[in-house]
Amino acid sequence: MIETIGLTKKYGSFYALQDLNLVVEDSTVFGFVGANGAGKSTTFSILATLLQPTAGDAFINGISVTKNPQEVRRQIGYMPDFFGVYDQLKTEEYLDFYGASYGIKPKERAVLIPKLLELVNLEHKRYDYVDLLSRGMKQRLCLARALIHDPNILILDEPASGLDPRARVEMRDILRELKAMGKTILISSHILPELAEMCDSIGVIDNGKLIAQGSVHDIQAQLQSEKVLRVKVAGDTQAIIPFFEMDPFVSQIEDQREKNVIQFFYRGTEEEQMRLLQRAIEQKIPILSFAEEETDLEDVFMAITKGVEIG
């Protein structure tokens, strides 16, 4: 389990991270969402014992990162957003070096390394120099490195950044496999829909503050005040727009005439929404469908970081 209590990092008068309270339960995947500079990497660096917090504390499996960083390092597998590799070191030697760095015996390493290379689909690159691998391969190799000591917690900072679509899909598949293995994963990404697919819960961070935390559906539900309704009619949409404009809870009507669809933001409750539909039918508006538009994580993120207060 990962837990942060009042975690704060301050540079002069600037708060890179402010009073972060976060809980990631065992064997779950937690997505950390935020714009560049929001505080994601700062949080990850503190959890990886690379950065000293100004206040508060973080716990990995109940072990404090400030009081016992050496033990924390044994518990986590960390993959930074930017990393380099050593020149003139082969893939197998790269993993062997880190295996030795975690005190794994040579015989165990010899068994472990082929398995890890198979997991990240790099078994064919075993004897290639790491600096000659593609970006996607280096990312996968770095993930294999983070797994070498079999940690039950993985801290992955933008593991899919800079990858082409194919490499991204491969990375996602590996992460799914790790999730199935029961690893606790804390992952950040700016590819939000990808997180929505694999995360059990997400946290949205903006300007160093955690502004939303919960399951993907919970957070979407909390956005009800900004839900989008989509109405498809038989006939011209122009004729029905005045009817919807009269409703006090409707705003920003978008006319998609070529599809016979109008789309608008609706702030009313479910009961008020039901009454709107009844009135429309009474007015003999030829409605073919009246539905709530699915809000994806991208929309949630944009709405939240625009300043919509959530729970």
């Binding site: 014992t49 690379l50 050496q70 960390y78 930074p80 380099g84 590799v85 050593y86 005190g103």
Partner: peptide
């Protein structure tokens, strides 16, 4: 400078 230090520092080597 090569961005390999952070990874090295998160290993359990003293």
């Amino acid at each position: 400078e090569k961005q390999t230090l952070n990874i090295l520092l998160t290993t359990s080597q003293t």
